[in-house]
């Protein structure tokens, strides 16, 4: 297997609102597109939060791009953050900024030397790919759920991350947009080594782009492998997550 982008080594963690606890051991290679699927409260979002260094595991280690997360409230300046793009279930677009300014913020903050013109063209290119150009001057409160999510994905991709963590990326997106998003992620993966970990709570065509599926239930990995292989292996109750 190629070099690991994300390792969750014997991670154990209580899950909020569930009697079960997360108990996983995962290794995701650089450039892989992994879809973590399963019912609600199975631990998908928690895996992403652990991978993003937002929470510490009760036991085990989380290593992202060779950096072991030690959660510290002042860890924003960790350089590994700039190699990671994350969109959580609540996308967190800044409500006092327009969509354009939200997407431009990572560049404005971390690439201060970039000219305003280059910055604008980079942001516009991103908005265009995600079909958000007409919304550029709208505030998050004026956007629908799918537009907010796409805006957050655009923002997460602005610094060309090595790892992209997406929690329910298709929520609020129409079928056409799901396919467009899948095509865009695949295109980004073709042009550079981009590891994608997406958590999905139901079947979506977005899953078809994944190299590997991790099927999660009650905090444990029920199955892990390519979609076709899993369809045969898993219990019938879980097959509908695979399509």
């Amino acid at each position: 297997m190629n070099e690991a982008a994300l390792i969750l080594e014997q991670v154990r963690m209580p899950m909020l609102g569930s009697p079960h606890r997360l108990d996983v051991d995962l290794r995701i290679g650089a450039g892989e597109f992994v879809a973590v699927v399963g019912p609600s409260r199975s631990g998908k979002s928690l895996i992403l939060e652990l991978a993003a260094g937002l929470v510490s595991p009760q036991a085990g280690r989380v290593i992202l791009l060779g950096h072991e997360w030690v959660v510290d409230l002042n860890d924003e300046s960790s350089p590994v953050r700039l190699r990671l793009g994350t969109v959580l279930q609540q996308p967190g677009l800044l409500s006092n900024m327009t969509l354009f300014n939200n997407v431009a913020l990572p560049l404005r903050y971390h690439r201060a030397s970039m000219s305003e013109r280059d910055r604008e063209s980079a942001v516009m290119a991103q908005l265009e790919r995600l079909r958000l150009v007409p919304m550029r001057d709208r505030f998050p409160a004026e956007l629908n759920q799918g537009e907010v999510r796409r805006g957050a994905i655009a923002r997460a991709l602005m610094l060309d991350p090595d790892v992209l963590l997406l929690d329910d990326p298709v929520a609020g997106l129409d079928a056409e947009m799901v396919l467009a998003l899948k095509a865009y992620v695949e295109e980004r993966q073709r042009t550079r080594t981009l590891t994608v970990v997406a958590a999905l709570r139901s079947f979506s065509p977005f899953i078809e782009g994944a190299d590997r599926l991790v099927l999660l239930r009650n905090g444990r990995v029920e199955a892990d492998g390519p979609r076709a292989a899993l369809a045969e292996a898993v219990a019938s109750t879980l097959r509908h997550y695979l399509g």
Partner: peptide, 12 residues
């Protein structure tokens, strides 16, 4: 609205 978390995630 998790904007504070989003800023942390952006390394800000």
């Amino acid at each position: 609205t998790r904007e504070v978390v989003a800023l942390r995630l952006m390394g800000i």
